[in-house]
Design a protein around this nucleic acid. Structure first.
Lengths: 209, 209
DNA sequence: CTCTTTATAACATCTTGGTGTTATGACTTT
DNA sequence: AAAGTCATAACACCAAGATGTTATAAAGAG
């Protein structure tokens, strides 16, 4: 069992020191850096190269999300755990997009925090099942297609797909072995059914935007 | 603590019966239906209206994903837990898109299965942190923008954003208070930087497709 | 067997988009 | 001070897309 090196970015002095003590006092863990703001963390972490970084959301100056995004860009293998008091949707997604792989609440117990750090280091994404539900809900939202698309015939869907890929009318005609005039006709019908007046709007509906 | 009604869809007789016994033998849980294929489940579950459905992936005939999709469409409040032996990426995402909110492996212990059912019923999304990582990775993949977009000036990004929304050149000109010729110029530069020759291709790059 | 839908096709016309070329003032970098 | 970048602008030319109208054969619904 190798030792997991951890860095902490947290502006609250008491919380920071408590976490540092916890980690250094536990076998298999070592806290190799603790910072009270993102700027200091960005300067030192590239030298320390910890396995795992615990990141607070609200920091003075640059916020934790931006700090993760910058470090993750330079060190893709570094693992980031977001520590926050909120379960706010936007913040969860921003953190995940920035490169955080774990997302836990500050009220988490010391033992669970240590487990989460190890879990993260070993390739998991520790998060509460409440937070997981938010993430899952995001998938389900994205998946429902525009009902207007169902009104298209299969040939029209085929044409729309070609349109979405940026083919010229004459290329579509070639690809589907039909005349360019027929392509025009289909496109016209598609526009009518989707209530749009341009290719871009049609494609946007196709991709549900 | 209310009683959670559960239905099981699982083609293996032994596993199905074991789960049924487990659930009926545990306080706070009741198994009100058990089916060996999707077709039977689709017929009976609309009458039974269980709180939670445990769904196997591989079933004879219709698979579990399709079965979830149909039931979820009719009963959006019903909760589905995918039970599988695989941790395959595609299957996870297909299950989530179909409407499953929990995703656990069949090797899960009886106690954990019961906990997961309650968790699901109470609004969580029980899944192992390994599976959560797959889901999180999907977010991070989607989020990394095309580096070519970074080469665009802020004005060019603004123009591209307008293009992506389907505005005509003259509308863009009006929106940004510049001449249509300037719009042309910017569009031309954008196309050069993105190595495309049409609006649709540029928009596709903008949305990372 | 008629009515409707679908896929096919053509033609005219007008609008919009894409390309080439040139230019100017503001600002930044060297 | 010179060189480069950026946002602005104009003009010409041709290609491509959008609109309106009309038509026909095949398949499916009633």
């Amino acid at each position: 069992m190798d030792i997991i090196s951890v860095a902490i970015v947290e502006d609250n002095h008491d919380i920071r020191q408590a976490m540092e003590l916890l980690i250094n006092g536990s076998e298999g863990y070592a806290c190799i850096g603790a910072f009270n703001n993102a700027e200091n963390a960005l300067e030192k972490i590239p030298q320390l190269l910890p396995n795992v970084v615990l990141m607070d959301f609200n920091l003075p100056g640059m916020n934790g999300i931006e700090c993760i995004a910058r470090l993750k860009g330079e060190f893709p293998d570094m693992q980031f755990m977001m520590l926050t008091v909120y379960e706010d949707d936007d913040k969860i997604f921003m953190a995940l997009e920035a490169g955080a792989s774990g997302y836990i609440l500050k009220k988490t117990s010391p033992g669970e925090l240590l487990d989460a750090i190890r879990d993260l280091h070993e390739g998991g994404s520790p998060m509460s099942s409440q937070i997981a539900r938010r993430v899952v809900a995001y998938f389900q939202k994205q998946a429902k297609p525009n009902p207007a698309l169902e009104a298209l015939t299969s040939r029209e869907k085929e044409i729309l797909d070609q349109l979405s890929k940026g083919f010229l009318y004459k290329e579509i005609a070639g690809n589907l072995f039909i005349s360019i005039e027929t392509v025009r006709r289909h496109v016209h019908n598609i526009y009518e059914k989707l209530h749009v007046r341009s290719r871009t709007d049609a494609v946007n509906k196709y991709f549900n935007r």
